[in-house]
Design a protein around this nucleic acid. Sequence first.
DNA 1: GTAACTACTAACGAAAAAGTGCCTACTGGC
DNA 2: GCCAGTAGGCACTTTTTCGTTAGTAGTTAC
Lengths: 127, 127
Amino acid sequence: MAMSLHLRQNSDMQCPMDGLLRMLMGPWTTYILWLIRSNGPQRFGQLRKQMPTISAKMLTERLRMLEEVGILHREQEETIPPKVTYSMTERGHDLNKVLDDLAKLAVKWDCPGAEKAAREKMPKKAS
Amino acid sequence: MAMSLHLRQNSDMQCPMDGLLRMLMGPWTTYILWLIRSNGPQRFGQLRKQMPTISAKMLTERLRMLEEVGILHREQEETIPPKVTYSMTERGHDLNKVLDDLAKLAVKWDCPGAEKAAREKMPKKAS
DNA sequence: GTAACTACTAACGAAAAAGTGCCTACTGGC
DNA sequence: GCCAGTAGGCACTTTTTCGTTAGTAGTTAC
């Protein structure tokens, strides 16, 4: 904790994207968004089945975070066993447009270079 | 390394964005791009001065990665002391358009929610 | 003659992130 | 009566990430 009383990285600097990127950056985040957009609102367990290697803890955490920033909506039925469904908010749809553009770029480039670098020099978990 | 012979997270799945996001996601990545776009080609030391809290190791690593995926161009003069200048490639400019959109979104939302969540539930370093 | 300058690299260690296993509550099927 | 099933929470362990320190080279300024 070298800089707790300092600039927190550059979040206090002039770049307004910081918060947004920090959110998208999280592991699995965009993959979750993609699943919900493609297949509609879904329950916790359904999402989990589509991401065989995610841990429950991680999935919970990501979903909670996406809810907190207002991108996903969480609907809970208090039955037992419980039933929780996640869907996109309006804000979520805003985001999808940008993500689409990003996806187009990814397809356009689709170079082995990116593949290679992704394996070596970048954070391990994305999507 | 639970799954080295397996799906590596979901990178082997259908999402083509994975590599691209893994790249943008890295700490400081977009901040570096922003600096170079705003102020033009720059040398290692100049960049460093503008990011007082980054370590040399980190900066080197990020720059190398951006070079590897073809977003930055690295030009080295073999003098001693050496002189290395980084500039944007064409591909880099492609990216900037999308990043601009992202920035617009960030400004549009600019909610305390994002701020708050950014502090708590997301990876520590972005920009 | 030595100290500073630049753009790094390698090795080490601390801190943060993520995985694992165990727990909950009530209902429904055997 | 017993076990499975849902959506997690909590504590503990492992993995990953990142900063710090030390070192490189030859020229130039003191």
